[in-house]
C-alpha cells in the first residue's frame, strides 16, 4: 500500500466507526494528539490523588477513611490503565513521567486548587468527578480502541466516586448549620474551576475541530459544559445549596440554563503555573519519583541477580 492508501484505509475506518488498534497505521498527528491527550489524562489521575490524599489521614469516620482510601487508590488504577493505553502508541511510562516532571506535559488544572475542609472531599467527588464523567463518557466511543476500552472501566468507577462525593455533600447539608456552611463554602470554591475543566470555549479551542474529525472527541467543550451545568443545578437544589453564579437562570427557549461568564484569565493563569498549589503538586510527584529511585534500582538489580542465578543453575544442570 502507498502512504496515500494507508491514509484512505484509516479515513474509512474512522468514517465507519471501526476502532483504530495499536498495530494499525495511523497518521503521525493522530498518534501525537492521542499521546498528548491520554498522557494528560493519566497525569491528571496521578496528580489528582494528592488533593484528596490530603484528607485520608483526617477523614472524620472510619467508613469515610476507608472509602476515601479506596477512591484515591482507584485513581492510581486509572492512571495505570491510561499510561498503559499511551504505551501502546510507542512511548514509555518513564518518558511520560519525565514530561510531567519537566512541566512539558499538562494535567487538569483543577488539581492546583487546595483542599481546605472535609467538605472538599464531597465537592471534588460531586463536581470534579461529575465533570470528569461528562468528559469521559463520550470517550468510551473514542476512535482509538485501547483508550476507549480504558474509559469504559474508568467511567464505571468514576460514577461511584461521584455518588460518594454527593453523599458526603448530602450528609453535610442535612447536618449541623456549620456543616452546611462547610458544604456551601466548598461549592463556592469548586464551582468555577469545575466549569473550567471542560476547557476553553469552542471558539478558542485549538484542538477541538481536528479531534472531532478523528472521533477522538465526540462533543465540544461548550456542549459538555452545558450538559454538566444543567444536571448539576438540579443536584444543588436537592442539597439546598446555592451555586455561586447570580446569572444562572433557566432559559425556556433554549431548554438549558444560562450562566455567567467564566473567568478565563484565572484559568490561563493556573495553567501557566500560578495556581495556589501548582508547585506543591508537582514537587510532591517529583519528590516521590526521586525518593523512589533507589527502590526501583534495587528491584531491578535484584531481578537481574535472580535471572543470572537461574541461568547459572540451568547451565550447571
Amino acid at each position: 500500500m502507498t502512504v496515500h492508501s494507508f491514509q484512505e484505509h484509516f479515513d474509512k475506518k474512522i468514517g465507519s466507526d471501526v476502532s483504530i488498534e495499536p498495530r494499525d497505521w495511523m497518521p503521525d498527528d493522530y498518534r501525537k494528539t492521542l499521546i498528548r491527550q491520554i498522557s494528560q489524562h493519566a497525569h491528571s489521575e496521578i496528580i489528582g490523588m494528592l488533593p484528596e490524599g490530603n484528607w485520608i489521614s483526617r477523614a472524620p469516620s472510619l467508613r469515610r477513611k476507608a472509602v476515601l482510601l479506596a477512591k484515591v487508590q482507584d485513581e492510581a488504577g486509572h492512571g495505570l490503565y491510561l499510561y498503559s493505553a499511551a504505551e501502546t502508541l510507542g512511548i514509555t511510562r518513564d518518558e511520560l513521567y519525565d514530561q510531567l516532571h519537566s512541566g512539558k506535559a499538562k494535567y487538569s488544572s483543577i488539581f492546583n486548587y487546595p483542599t481546605l475542609t472535609w467538605a472538599d472531599m464531597g465537592a471534588i467527588g460531586w463536581l470534579v468527578d461529575g465533570a470528569a464523567i461528562m468528559n469521559q463518557v463520550p470517550l468510551c466511543r473514542c476512535s482509538y480502541g485501547p483508550y476507549a476500552r480504558a474509559m469504559v472501566r474508568v467511567c464505571k468507577e468514576e460514577s461511584f466516586h461521584q455518588r460518594q462525593g454527593y453523599e458526603i455533600m448530602l450528609t453535610l447539608s442535612n447536618g449541623a448549620p456549620m456543616q452546611k456552611k462547610m458544604a456551601q463554602d466548598a461549592l463556592d470554591r469548586w464551582w468555577w474551576p469545575s466549569l473550567m475543566m471542560f476547557g476553553p470555549p469552542d471558539a478558542e479551542s485549538g484542538n477541538t475541530e481536528q479531534s472531532m474529525r478523528w472521533r477522538i472527541k465526540r462533543l465540544t467543550n461548550d456542549e459538555l459544559r452545558q450538559k454538566f451545568i444543567d444536571v448539576t443545578v438540579e443536584q444543588a437544589n436537592i442539597l439546598g445549596l446555592t451555586i455561586p453564579d447570580k446569572n444562572l437562570k433557566w432559559n425556556e427557549e433554549r431548554g438549558h440554563y444560562d450562566s455567567g461568564v467564566i473567568n478565563w484569565d484565572e484559568f490561563w493563569n493556573v495553567v501557566k503555573g500560578n495556581g495556589p498549589c501548582n508547585k506543591q503538586r508537582l514537587d510532591a510527584r517529583k519528590n516521590a519519583w526521586a525518593d523512589g529511585q533507589w527502590v526501583r534500582d534495587a528491584a531491578m538489580a535484584h531481578a537481574e541477580k535472580r535471572k543470572a542465578r537461574k541461568e547459572k543453575a540451568a547451565k550447571a544442570a
Partner: peptide, 8 residues
C-alpha cells in the same frame, strides 16, 4: 498513598 516509589 500518592507518594509511593512505583505506581503499582
Amino acid at each position: 498513598c500518592g507518594h509511593g516509589p512505583i505506581l503499582e
